[in-house]
Design a protein around this nucleic acid. Structure first.
Lengths: 129, 129
DNA sequence: GGACACTGGTATCCGATGGGAACTATGATG
DNA sequence: CATCATAGTTCCCATCGGATACCAGTGTCC
């Protein structure tokens, strides 16, 4: 049994376990997409921004900084002109990509099974006497 | 090639693709935990709330309603006394649990590799001339 | 009959987060 | 001197997440 800083076995369901924070970091739309965008090698800010269609620069910066802070990506500045910043996966980030890639692919593979905007159960619906 | 309502192959990176919405739904801390909480069979609101340590009733209600709306969980009301509401996975929800369970387990298995609150790169750090 | 408990939520308030648009800094280029 | 490119930052506002309080319906206890 692995005990931890929270004094218990690691458990994503425990509010105080650091796992909760990591899950919060990874189980996030932009994180999942950003890490995926780096799977094929380092990319620059602008390239990631283009790939993650629709992301605002503010949110992308925040996402990448958070990933960097947690050791999933490296940020390298090449002070050329114009400025050139490259983001790449760390060893840990590469490993984290596997489950995230599975999730992304599952979504793509199963999207047709999802109902469109459906009817919410009204209070009386689905009632079994 | 599978074409879709967005007129293109499904792609989570495309802003207009419904995949994006599904990813947003699944790549979410509370969704991932809530679906996992239902893996072993139907559970009642109070039980899920207890399992997802720290979730507020408002957020849990919203999460479950959203999952229901997208066909991942079923909500069944048993008008017994006291009121009894049961949430269970649909076929689709059960399938969605696989990649989410992998993600949760990856986090637990790799949590020790994550650096603690680390130093953010200051503008001068990591610069390669 | 009144107080209390159980269940599954709402209502309310507030700070954090997400998103869009505009703006900045630096230095090359025309 | 104006323009362009890169990589952001700043501002504002709408939405979301989280904490706390409260509610409705019914059964039981005293």
């Amino acid at each position: 049994m692995v005990t931890t800083s929270c004094g218990k076995p690691h458990d994503v369901y425990a509010a105080a376990c650091p796992c909760r924070d990591m899950l919060d970091l990874l189980a996030n739309k932009w994180s999942a997409l950003a890490l995926g965008a780096l799977e094929d090698g380092p990319r620059r800010f602008g390239a990631i921004r283009t790939r993650l269609e629709g992301v605002s620069p503010k949110v992308l910066t925040a996402t990448l900084r958070r990933l960097e802070e947690h050791g999933l990506v490296d940020r390298t500045v090449y002070p050329a002109v114009p400025l050139h910043v490259e983001y790449s996966l760390t060893e840990l980030g590469r490993d984290a990509c596997e489950p995230l890639a599975l999730l992304r692919h599952w979504v793509v593979d199963n999207i047709d099974r999802f109902p469109g905007p459906a009817v919410l159960s009204d209070p009386a619906a689905s009632v079994r006497a």
